[in-house]
Design a protein around this nucleic acid. Structure first.
Lengths: 237, 237
DNA sequence: TGTTATACCGACCATTGGTCTACAATTCAA
DNA sequence: TTGAATTGTAGACCAATGGTCGGTATAACA
């Protein structure tokens, strides 16, 4: 094979790109290291020059996801134009949008991504995202408790619950898809219904009137997906 | 190796026992099939006579856990001596006790069990348990909604949230242990605080006055663990 | 220019989950 | 009691996996 030398940063990103595509479509376990390096057109030696192990690759990938998702969210907790509830809503909506936007392939490949073999990857991503988001969340909830908007004795705990709700999406969709009919529409329906439940649950946990928390923009998932699909169809057809 | 033939049921259970011990202490991925068969003193051929794959072994193990956990819980949803809230409380408390009792090794090996490598196993156990518990939970919640005790538009969703809370224990403890100080006392403290939060969260999600839901029996985990430890110490010393 | 550091290659390795053939132990009909 | 079918067991074998290693080409810098 010809020897091509690239800027390290670039090569690293490339590797992450290929790993992402493979991990998302096949799952972390099923996608072999050989697949990754073949896809990236690189040798084994080169790979291990950049990552200490397959595990480390996963870690790095999750980190990148988390970092991307955090972009443009940092400012919210200090935004003077918003009250506590506004900040919380803003953060939730943004994080949700970021989640969907940073991995649109994943959401487009709805049926394949939400499979048990992706548990590990998803968990890692959420763990990384959690590590970044939680402090922000906690700060906002604390502020809300202090100014009397929210009512809870355990802001960290509530923040964790919020993150849990986010992670649970995976299981909700997985259940809708794998359990019986593999209909995408049904899965989306289930997802949106669940998000509505989470909103109200959060309202009540924080002692707010029903309807205060607004996570979802109705139809956003569907919009992203169908846009993607049209795009893919264009590519293939 | 000498050829020893055992009653199939027995051998199967034995295999599950050894698998359980290894999976719990080393994690599903790290414990190799060879480890399992070596531990069980059996050949590869024999193993594959009982299980179609390593995956199937995991599945069977999770099923066994779930089945054990379900024992003595079935009757609750029809208990005429309890109202909706009583049934829910009874179910939650029982399931929690079952969870701890059926895998006391796991809870005794607190530090080793709550590690990332056990994600897969834990998820499988909870999935299996979930499949059994959820219908019961849903039935109870539905009853409560009908008789006006609970207030929610999505009983299935609330049931899922309850299961989520149960599963989240893993992450709570994992965070307390892996993140910084490996102090067991701290981990238990965090766990019990979290359970209290879940209780109140559930109260509010279901539209009940704070303090209605009672999942925990304070100190139960600690009691089981210290008992175990004393026992182990006796064995070693 | 020479030399050190970096990026890269690919043969090689042990281990893994899994298959297969051979054979021993049981079961049970004749 | 015999003997064929079934069930349980052993272990050699397999392809594929994640990972190592010695070596080489390119870049960076003196």
């Amino acid at each position: 094979m010809p020897r091509v030398i690239k800027h390290p940063e670039l090569r690293r990103e490339e590797l992450l790109d290929h790993a992402q595509a493979l991990f998302l479509t096949q799952g972390y376990d099923r996608a072999s290291l050989n697949d990754v390096i073949a896809s990236a057109g690189i040798s084994k030696g080169a790979f291990y020059h950049y990552f200490a192990s397959k595990e480390a690759l996963l870690e790095a990938l999750a980190d990148r996801f988390a970092k991307q998702a955090m972009a443009g969210v940092q400012h919210i907790s200090g935004d003077p134009g918003l009250d506590s509830l506004g900040r919380l809503n803003s953060l939730l909506a943004q994080s949700r949008r970021a989640k969907i936007d940073t991995a649109p392939e994943a959401w487009a490949l709805f049926e394949t991504i939400f499979r048990p073999e992706n548990l590990v990857l998803f968990h890692r991503i959420n763990l990384a995202a959690s590590a970044s988001f939680t402090p922000l969340l906690v700060r906002i909830i604390r502020q809300g408790v202090e100014d009397g908007t929210f009512k809870t004795f355990d802001p960290e705990g509530v923040a964790d619950i919020v993150m849990q709700f986010g992670m649970a999406t995976h299981d909700v969709v997985a259940k809708a898809i794998n359990g019986g009919d593999a209909d995408m529409e049904v899965a989306i329906e289930a997802l949106e219904r669940r998000v509505r439940l989470y909103e109200i649950a959060l309202d009540r946990i924080l002692g707010l009137p029903d309807g205060s928390i607004r996570i979802s923009e109705a139809g956003y998932v569907r919009a992203v997906m169908t846009a993607r699909r049209r795009q893919d169809a264009g590519k293939i057809g």
